[in-house]
């Protein structure tokens, strides 16, 4: 039997998901030996976009896409990936829900470009030159750039078979996902690949797991207000931790390092809008309504990784 063919495309992401695959270390050797990697751009393999376009439709067994869809080039290659791949996986929270880079949807393209290229104190651009989709240099060299668009998760552009959360996905989780993929033991199409537990369910700080009950938070704290206790629940102490609504395939890595969860794992099964669910969960754990006004910067807290996939989507501009 020939090896399953794998393609990997990094769209509007940071390469952190690629590095998380490398973090598999020895497991990666076992996995890689069982796969024929036909495309992995731009980070790992030398294949170009036109090489991918030349491959027969449906000839690749599994395609992974990390990063959101943010410009016309991403949109085009993602559609090509869908044509060429039998199974397409949104790999990491950017592809699944939009990711941190999806926060661009809070602003118009003009606002974003203005800040980055003109109105920053360290920028020297008196002619106010902005990136253009087409430019002719010296009257004869025509150059093109992709056009920018609002950030979208993968499933707003093409049909997605599976989702893997995390920023980046935790390497042990990737290992399990790859093994499930290779052995054909996959959940129904359209599912998240997850063990199905929330961060709280695997968190050593969870009082419920220690036979105690969870108390309401009587104060709202920021991490700069001082370190939390050694083993108490961050939420009880007032640090707004999104562990109750976030997939815990990471093994609760942030809370175990005194850092409240920010939801990169994606929504627990059954939840469509992560931000709404997070608002509801946090609100139900605060002692009184006055505390709600003390929540710092709610949109960056509740929608940090999931704005483009939320009902807010791109409707709100700041």
């Amino acid at each position: 039997m020939s090896k399953p063919k794998l393609a990997y495309y990094l769209a509007g992401g940071c390469g952190g998901c690629d590095i998380a695959v490398v973090d598999l270390s020895e497991t990666l050797v076992d996995v890689a030996l069982q796969l024929d990697i036909v495309f992995w751009a731009p980070t790992v393999a030398d294949a170009k976009y036109k090489d991918l376009e030349a491959m027969p439709d449906g000839s690749i067994d599994v395609g992974l896409v990390s990063g959101n869809v943010r410009n016309s080039e991403h949109e085009h290659i993602v559609k090509v990936m869908r044509q060429k791949c039998k199974v397409l996986i949104a790999f990491g929270i950017c592809a699944s829900c939009g990711g941190i880079k999806g926060l661009v949807n809070l602003h118009t393209t003009e606002q974003l470009l203005d800040k980055a290229y003109i109105n920053t104190f360290s920028t020297d651009n008196p002619e106010k030159i902005l990136p253009q989709t087409t430019v002719v240099v010296d009257g004869k060299y025509e150059l093109t750039l992709p056009s920018l668009m609002d950030a979208r998760p993968l499933d707003q552009v093409v049909k997605v078979d599976y989702y893997v959360g995390g920023c980046p996905p935790y390497h042990e989780h990737i290992g399990k996902a790859f093994m499930a993929l290779l052995s054909g033991q996959l959940p129904p199409s359209g599912s998240w690949i997850t063990m199905g537990k929330a961060v709280c369910e695997v968190c050593n700080r969870n009082p419920v797991l220690q036979g105690k009950s969870k108390k309401f938070a009587t104060t709202v704290k920021r991490t700069i207000d001082g370190p939390p206790s050694e083993d108490g629940c961050l939420l009880e102490e007032g640090y707004l931790c999104l562990g109750p609504v976030t997939q815990g395939d990471c093994g609760s890595k942030c809370p175990s390092a005194n850092v409240p969860c920010r939801g990169c794992g994606g929504p627990i099964p059954g939840v469509k809008d992560f931000g709404l669910r997070a608002i509801s969960a946090i609100a139900s754990m605060l002692d009184n309504e006055e505390l709600v006004d003390q929540i710092p910067d709610p949109v960056h807290l509740f929608y940090r990784y999931t704005l483009p996939s939320s009902f807010l989507g791109k409707k709100i501009k700041r």
Partner: peptide, 15 residues
């Protein structure tokens, strides 16, 4: 060929 926009969307985020 990429543009991200962190310069803008970070504004207002707790340090």
């Amino acid at each position: 060929v990429e543009f991200m926009g962190y310069e803008k969307f970070l504004i207002g985020m707790p340090i």
